[in-house]
């Protein structure tokens, strides 16, 4: 129970806000036998209501902005947002494009950035570990 069961049973919901699918394929790759993140109890879920972690990819197109806000609001607390890929962090090759409203941290609060175009699965797993530490800090703050 408590924080231990939270950090060892993270359920991930993947939000694509206009990504080129490069990062999305790397996320799926981390579920394959080679990386197998289910070892750590991490599981991809189909609904933000079930999620502990929002894995956001893409530079946030104008159409996606209200949807991203809603998905964030639909996720039950405590939750963590991980941005995967350069696009979500600063727009990358789409930087200052007319149809973008990103980066993601101007729309919802972001906890961890994973850089790369696309990042390797190792980097994504490392991002999840950083999210663990963040969750640990958040819950100890609440209890004290």
């Amino acid at each position: 129970m408590g924080i231990d069961s939270l950090k060892r049973a993270l359920w991930i919901y993947h939000v694509n806000t206009g990504s080129c699918n490069g990062c999305d394929i790397e996320i799926v790759a981390s579920l394959t036998p080679r990386y197998d993140i289910e070892r750590f109890g991490i599981k991809l879920v189909g609904s933000p209501r079930h999620a502990d972690v929002l894995l956001v990819t893409g530079p946030v197109t104008r159409q996606m902005e209200p949807r991203l806000r809603r998905v964030y609001a639909q996720t039950p607390d405590p939750k963590v947002v991980i941005v995967v890929g350069n696009c979500g962090a600063d727009g990358d090759v789409f930087h200052e494009s007319y149809n973008l409203v990103g980066p993601i941290d101007q729309i919802i609060p972001v906890d961890v950035y994973v850089h790369g175009c696309p990042p390797r699965p190792e980097a994504i797993i490392d991002g999840v570990v950083k999210a663990w530490l963040k969750l640990e800090g958040a819950t100890t703050k609440e209890t004290t």
């Binding site: 939270l6 060892r8 109890g41 209501r49 502990d52 639909q74 039950p76 607390d77 405590p78």
Partner: peptide, 16 residues
């Protein structure tokens, strides 16, 4: 023991 952890985690989450 993963299912036990899953249940334990869901128990401490917000119910919307």
């Amino acid at each position: 023991v993963q299912p036990f952890r899953d249940v334990g985690k869901l128990m401490m989450k917000e119910s919307i």
